[in-house]
Simulated assay, not measured.
Amino acid sequence: MGIPADFRSGDGMEALLIDLDGVLYEGDKAVNGGAEAVAWLQQEGIPFRFVTNTSSRPRQNIVEKLAAMGVSVTVEQLFTPPVAARQWLVDQQVASVALFVPVATATEFVGLPVVDSSLATGVDAVVLGDLGQGWSFERLNQAFRLLMSSPDTQLVALGLTRYWAVDDGLQLDVGPFVKALEYATGKTAVVMGKPSAEFFHAALQQLTAGQKPLNPA
């Protein structure tokens, strides 16, 4: 698949935010023309970020997956819900954070005031990601109790995806667990992920740091 002529001209194109699943790959299979398109963007010097709702693994794993498909990018060119959530937590100057995310994803939050969610009695923010098989009633109830410990405790969701396809069928993602906690606590989650407009704006802010701001319209 080549680069379409009308796209190749780049008229008016300031930058691109690009999805991954279904655009560059489907599962572990590369999408034809994806690597060529990324190479063209790099050759033309057009700024871009990959935006994905993946919260079950760190960015380095995604970089390695793309490299195996012939797409050479850096960790900094990937914008994920954990990256957006980390920046939000820093901006809010939270004093304590409880993470309900996979161990690998927790590495994205190194340096923040993370507490042991099983021992904490109160925190400023509860971060919810795709725990997959790691979910249990006990884990969900821990998050619920922490959220109820103070009216000021924030629920931060790493996306609202309802489900996704795995090898043996469909599997629940983080969205249903976020909605369950919203219903139980009466709180509204701060959503870090697609299709939240704030997520795309945050990606643009990172993309244009130190440069002339882009028009997001």
Rank of each mutant, 00 (worst) to 15 (best):
M1D: 12
P4L: 10
D6C: 10
R8W: 07
R8C: 06
G12S: 08
G12F: 04
L16H: 07
L16I: 09
L20M: 15
G22T: 07
E26D: 10
E26M: 10
E26L: 13
E26H: 10
G27T: 00
G34Y: 06
A35M: 00
E36I: 06
A37V: 01
V38H: 06
L41I: 10
Q43W: 09
E44L: 11
I46L: 13
P47E: 07
F48A: 00
R49H: 12
T52G: 00
N53C: 05
S55M: 01
P58T: 11
I62M: 12
V63C: 00
E64Q: 14
E64K: 11
K65R: 14
K65P: 01
A67S: 13
G70M: 03
S72G: 00
Q77R: 13
Q77N: 10
P81N: 10
P82Y: 02
P82E: 04
A84Y: 08
A84I: 04
L89I: 03
L89G: 02
V90A: 06
V94N: 11
S96N: 05
V97M: 08
A98D: 01
A98N: 02
L99P: 01
V101N: 04
V101D: 02
P102R: 12
A106P: 06
T107E: 15
T107N: 09
V110C: 07
D116A: 07
S117C: 10
L119R: 14
A125N: 12
A125E: 12
V126S: 00
V127I: 05
L128A: 01
Q133H: 12
G134D: 05
S136L: 01
R139T: 15
N141Q: 14
A143N: 08
R145G: 03
L146V: 02
S149M: 06
S150F: 03
V156P: 04
L158Q: 06
R162M: 12
R162Q: 15
W164V: 11
D167R: 13
D168T: 15
V174H: 11
P176R: 04
L181T: 06
A184T: 12
A189Y: 05
M192S: 09
G193S: 00
F199V: 02
F200Q: 09
A202R: 15
Q205W: 08
Q206N: 11
G210D: 11
Q211C: 10
K212P: 00
K212L: 14
L214T: 03
L214Q: 04
L214V: 15
N215E: 11
